[in-house]
């Protein structure tokens, strides 16, 4: 019971801090607005109807952007803000364990990322009937979890919010841009298959073309492997310095 209390307290602190940080909260709004704007612009000459390739591109753009911006930046910047404002040590000297802080920190961003992915699906122009909701939920959840763990790595490395952005942007470029430009280059397409955002992109194009998603062994290996790698990197960094270096 005590552990649940502590976990909910950390999650609530994070929820308040993140939801009141306009610099972070603008991320999901921009994502949805961008998908909507593209949909309106692309649909101008076709009475709002989008070709499957365009709908797939919008869905892929929206979910990749959301996963990277919300996961990496939201989690990473929130930890960096706690370091900057000297509240992280306060929290860690209040009987909160590392595990409780970890889970409490990613709960809200995780739920928000998955939720925004569904909003993007709804506004992207891909017919909901064409998408397998269960597959979308599972893959979204897995990708969101990986991005939140990477966000924890960003947070543990960053000294302040500016520093968190500097660390997160190159990662965002790789995980967001490689799958997005995969259609233009064979090499990037191959590389994209090894990224968790690439797995999502493939699913998005599949849905847009009315193809049911069937999990390939490589997809599962990529998702599980990248989750394990990100957790290991986090643990190594955490073991070395804790959340904050002395």
């Amino acid at each position: 019971m005590g552990n649940i209390n502590k976990l909910t307290a950390v999650a609530r602190i994070k929820w308040i801090c993140i939801s009141r940080n306009t610099a972070i909260m603008v991320g999901p709004v921009i994502t949805v607005a961008m998908v909507l704007a593209y949909k309106v612009i692309y649909g101008m000459n076709t009475d709002g109807e989008l070709s499957p390739i365009l709908a797939g591109m919008l869905l892929s753009l929206g979910i990749s952007m959301n996963i990277c911006m919300d996961g990496f930046l939201m989690v990473g910047t929130a930890i960096a803000e706690e370091k900057e404002k000297h509240t992280l040590r306060v929290l860690m000297t209040s009987s909160i364990t590392g595990v409780q802080y970890f889970i409490g920190s990613i709960l809200f961003p995780f739920a928000l990322t998955v939720g925004v992915n569904f909003v993007v699906l709804a506004v992207s122009g891909v017919s909901i009937g064409q998408a397998s909701i269960v597959a979308f939920l599972l893959l979204s959840a897995a990708a969101s979890l990986i991005s939140c763990v990477i966000g924890m790595v960003v947070g543990i490395c960053a000294k302040n919010q500016m520093n968190a952005n500097l660390i997160a942007y190159p990662l965002m470029l790789v995980f967001m841009m490689v799958p997005m430009f995969g259609n233009f280059s064979e090499g990037l397409h191959k590389l994209s298959g090894f990224l968790f955002t690439g797995v999502l992109t493939e699913m998005a194009y599949g849905f847009a073309n009315g193809e049911p998603y069937v999990a390939k062994p490589l997809d599962i290996a990529v998702l599980v492997g990248e989750l394990v790698i990100s957790i290991l990197v986090f643990l190594i960094l955490y073991k070395r310095n804790g959340f904050e270096k002395d």
Binding site: A9, I16, C17, K85
Partner: peptide, 24 residues
């Protein structure tokens, strides 16, 4: 500590009630 921080975006009450929850 000499630089213990407070959660600036929370109210005074919330700053304590969060820790009250942690310590029951």
């Amino acid at each position: 500590s000499d630089n213990s921080g407070i959660y600036e975006k929370m109210t005074v009450w919330q700053n304590l009630s969060m820790f009250a929850k942690i310590w029951r």
